[in-house]
Structures are given as C-alpha cells and as structure tokens.
Design a binder for these strands. Structure first.
Lengths: 196, 196
DNA sequence: GGAATGATGTCGGTGACTGACGTCAGTCAC
DNA sequence: GTGACTGACGTCAGTCACCGACATCATTCC
C-alpha cells in the first residue's frame, strides 16, 4: 500500500482548474485546492511557488519545444526563419484534442488580471530564452530580441485565434498565417521621426 | 493651517522608490512607506490597489500620449505608420533629464519579478488600447493587434536602450531605429510550415 | 535491521489587502 | 452662523498568501 497518491502537482493542477472555473480564482483558497485532493495547504506551496503558478505547471516543456525549433532551423536561416521554425515546433504542443481544455483554462486566465500578468511574464520569459538561443547562433542582439519577441506576439495572437469558437485550422497553420501578416504589416514602416 | 500635506500619492511614490532602491522591494513593507511620509498603511492602499502599483503612478498620461500619436497620424497612414507616430508622441515623455531617474526606477523593476510582471502587463494593456484605436480608424483586427503589439515591443527595447549607460541619442531617435530594424528583421519571413 | 531519504503534516508567524466605522476640517445651503 | 455634507484620513479586526522550522513515516539502501 502506498503512503500517498502519486503525482501531487498534476492532481493539484486539475483540481485547481476545476475550482477556478466554477468558483472563480479569488474565491478559491489554496487550502481548498489542497484539501480537495487530500493534501494540506503547506504541501500546495511546496509544489508551486505561488497560487497562480498552479495553472502553469508543465510550461517547461513548451520552452523546450521552442528551443528545439530554433535548433532545427538550417544554419543559414535568417532570424525570422529561425523563429518560424520555433513556432512550428511549439505548435505541436497544441493538438486539436487540446482545444476544448485550452479554452477553459484560457477563460479562467482572461478573467483574472493576476493570472494575465503571470501569463504575459511567462511569454516574455520564453521570448528572452529564444532570443538568447538566437544570439548563440550568431544573430546580433537587437535582431535577436526583435525576432524572438515578435515571435511571442505571433504566438499569443495565434493561440487566441486557435481557441476561438468555430476555428478549424491547426495551431501551426494559424501561426504561419499570423507570421505572414506580421511581415506584411511591418513591411512599409515609415520612420517615426517623420510623424507627430 | 492645512490638515494634511497635499498630493499624498506622489509623496508615497517618491518615498517608495527611495526605499525600494535602498532596502529592496520585498524588504520594504507598505506600512514603512506610509509611515515615512506620515500616513498609515490603510491610506497607502486607498491610493494604490496594491504595493507594486505605487511605482506605476502616472502611467495614465503615457497612454494618452500614445493615443494622441495615433490621432496625429494622417488619415491615409498605414497601420505601422500610425504606430510610428504613436511612438514619436510617447517619446516626448522621456526627455533626457529623466534618464537618470528612469535608470534607478528600472533597476528596481528589473530586480523584482513581481514588478516585471506588472510592467509587462501595463505594456500589453497599452498595446490593447492602441490596437483598439487602430480598429476605430478602420484597421482590421489582426493588423491592428500586430501593429500595436509590435509597437510595444519596439517601445520596450527602445526604452531599455535609452537608459543604457553612455547612451546619448534621444528616445525618439532610438525608437525610430528599432522600428526600422523590425521592418528589416521581419522582411524576409518564411512560412513556419516550411521548417521543423 | 538500522540509517538515510523524500514527501508530507503541524505549528506559528509575517505581511498584503479589505470592510466597517469613526474623526475632523472645509464647504455650502439656508 | 449653524447644521448637513463631503473628502481625506485613522483605527480595528479580519482573511489569506506564503514561509521557516520541525515532526512523521513509508520506502530504499547498505
């Protein structure tokens, strides 16, 4: 007989999402989440640095997918081509079966500013990591930062479209479209000093 | 005889920045900030929704500068030209005299993840507002969101360069350069579906 | 079979943040 | 000029996120 059920973090995450979705994020205490899976509040905070973090458990693998995409790009690829490869790789983390689940999770996040903050921070943090990987490949700092952060912008927009009701395209397809549109939008940029 | 010193929020902000810079953000309690200007903790939280917010007092005007830049753009301007105008307008909020002050403030923010989160949220929030303004001008949703969020990326990078030690150029000049580089970087984008 | 390990529980605390209510100077109606 | 009203603040008591220190006990390793 085992002393504890295994995989406490994932059990806590599932319980937290359910409680947040029904009762609301603020109205749910860490103690309630923990007790709903037979653990104590203290144990909750041993697995998650704070109450918000429980919704972001497993993000580590997403970062690695982005990085794998960077490394998969051919040696002569331009910065934005590397980012494109990175997005394609990351898109494998969002198969169609996950769409419904992602929708629920995102609706919880969208309704709670503290969770939005954490999400933006995660995105920016991935962007920094990808930029670092670009610099390792010889891309200069400004281009690397711009390409990586733009990639995160594309990713965020693509994801929000991917979970739209009625959307049929795959995450990879949407990301590709958004990235093309980014090129189109920025293509004719005028210097800001000309305006104002 | 006046009952209270005027402009409590600004006094609290100045005291908070000084304390955060010397003692650290976490090591400074809201009560200490309040007491250092002769107020109570309760009054601190009447002016600021949370402890982090004290460092972002006055951001409202920055948003309005961005929006003024949007409105100043000619009617036939492309989305990215409108964003360029917006950046130029916002740049007036960062005259050279503010550089030293901005450096101190930013070093506090950079060293504290909770403050970084709040900053990213503010930036994204301005981006959403600018995107909304673009849509009002007839820009379609995708282009508006891309242009506005890219503008925030440019703004963030430009600001971090503006406060670099030894940097001489104005905020407007740097922003113009970064925006040009964005166009160059995204110019040759390949579809992500080709890679990976 | 005893020691080390690792995940958990227990206890007591700090500090962010809130709601309810009291205080008091200025202001304005009458 | 008195009384109602308002606005900025103080006081008090509470909830909850989060942490450090220490105890517990099944499993594992020697």
């Amino acid at each position: 007989m085992v002393r504890w059920e295994p995989d406490a973090p994932r059990r806590l995450q599932k319980a937290a999402l359910k409680l947040f979705a029904t009762r609301g994020f603020e109205q749910t205490t860490a103690m309630e989440i923990a007790q709903s899976v037979g653990l104590t509040e203290r144990t909750f905070f041993r697995h998650f640095s704070d109450k918000r973090e429980v919704l972001f458990y497993g993000q580590h693998q997403l970062v690695e997918a982005f990085l794998a995409g960077v490394e998969a790009a051919p040696p002569d690829a331009s910065p934005i081509e590397i980012v494109a490869s990175s997005l394609t790789s990351a898109a494998t983390f969002f198969p169609d079966e996950l769409r419904a689940n992602s929708r629920v999770r995102q609706s919880v996040i969208d309704e709670n500013p503290p969770l939005r903050e954490r999400e933006l921070h995660k995105l920016a943090s991935i962007g920094t990591t990808v930029a670092e990987a670009l610099r390792t490949r010889g891309v200069d700092e400004l281009a690397a930062t711009l390409a990586a952060q733009s990639g995160m912008t594309v990713f965020g927009i693509a994801f929000s479209r991917w979970i739209r009701e009625g959307e049929q395209r795959s995450m990879a397809d949407i990301a590709a479209n958004v990235l093309r549109e980014l090129a189109a939008v920025t293509g004719n940029a005028a210097a800001p000093s000309e305006a104002g």
